[in-house]
Design a binder for these strands. Structure first.
Lengths: 177, 177
DNA sequence: CCCCTTCCATACGCTACCGTATGTTCTCGG
DNA sequence: CCGAGAACATACGGTAGCGTATGGAAGGGG
């Protein structure tokens, strides 16, 4: 079976979700795909290039899709609630997101994480403005909401089974004047 | 210079803070200490044992001290504010805490993280009860507050320079009925 | 002072992964 | 149907860290 660049980033994406950053390693990936690293090195000059292409693919495919999907909700409350519920649900089963957060120190991952976070914060700020908050306060609430999401996601990996019943309270607290 | 068990966990603790989990490696640590791994392997059977002793030392020395220090504040508001300010400040400059969060998947780190988190959540719950919240709601607020902290800490490593001015708003939001 | 234990250095083999070099197979356009 | 380029395999050398084995130094109790 011949493989192209996209095949490899897809495989790497899955490995990233399941095994974290260190699982994106040329030789194990090749073995897993029933190939040898000769194939990988034909499509990518080195490991960082594969990682780069992989995270950029994730950025393209997942970042905007979430926002699009949330926008199908009608009221700001529903949007916020859906956003939290959906994003946290993705986080559950070994997601790419958590792998990237854990690997935030990596110089390939850092810029991607930065771009994605800023985009999300921008969207969240707009969302809070729809609740009637002023510009500055909407930004603060967005930061708080996003931190809350990050923290929930983090807790899921370090304390599974303690995260669930907070959503309603969180939304209420976040939107209270 | 002769070294004992505590010397090595201290060195490992520093390495953990500065370089993360992967920096707790026998050979680099020994080199850094001007010794050879022969010394380390005399005091610890293997790498995991060193890591274990190191994180347990951190658990002893840092977990309870924070709570003690916060308890010196008078009002619940001041306690909450101090707690956030202090813990987030520790997080800034390459802390052990962040290294542990990033390595939450590790089977040595996980149980420690779990114990510490539960202890902190317990304390936070008590704190929110002092605000007049009922038992269940205090627990939810505690979870939210702790997630908020985790998220802020996480943001500090992936987006340095965007975290600061949220403290007041966060405290207000968290304590609002 | 000497011996026994503690502490440590040196040397070794092993694994996992990186990256390179070179040869082989597949595929498709002419 | 054949030749060129793309895709891949194989083999190699290199690095970093783990863990073991064994001998040497160091220091305190007898």
């Amino acid at each position: 079976m011949r493989r192209n660049r996209d095949d490899w980033t897809e495989i790497a994406l899955r490995a990233l979700a399941e095994g974290g950053l260190s699982a994106v390693a040329i030789e194990p990936l090749a073995a897993r795909a029933g190939a040898t690293k000769g194939s990988v090195y034909h499509h990518f000059p080195n490991r960082d290039a594969l990682l780069q292409a992989t995270v950029e693919r994730w950025e393209r495919e997942h970042t905007e899709k979430v926002i699009e999907l949330v926008e199908s909700e009608r009221t700001p409350e529903d949007k916020l609630r859906t956003l939290f519920a959906m994003v946290l649900d993705r986080t559950r089963k070994g997601s790419v997101e958590m792998a990237l957060l854990a690997g935030a120190g990596n110089e390939v991952i850092a810029p991607v994480l930065q771009r994605v976070t800023e985009k999300r914060l921008g969207y969240l700020t707009d969302l809070f403005r729809q609740f009637g908050f002023g510009k500055a306060q909407a930004r603060k609430r967005a930061l708080i909401a996003f931190s809350l999401y990050l923290g929930q996601a983090q807790m899921w990996v370090s304390l599974p089974g303690l995260v669930e019943p907070v959503l309603d309270e969180a939304v209420r607290v976040l939107t209270a004047k």
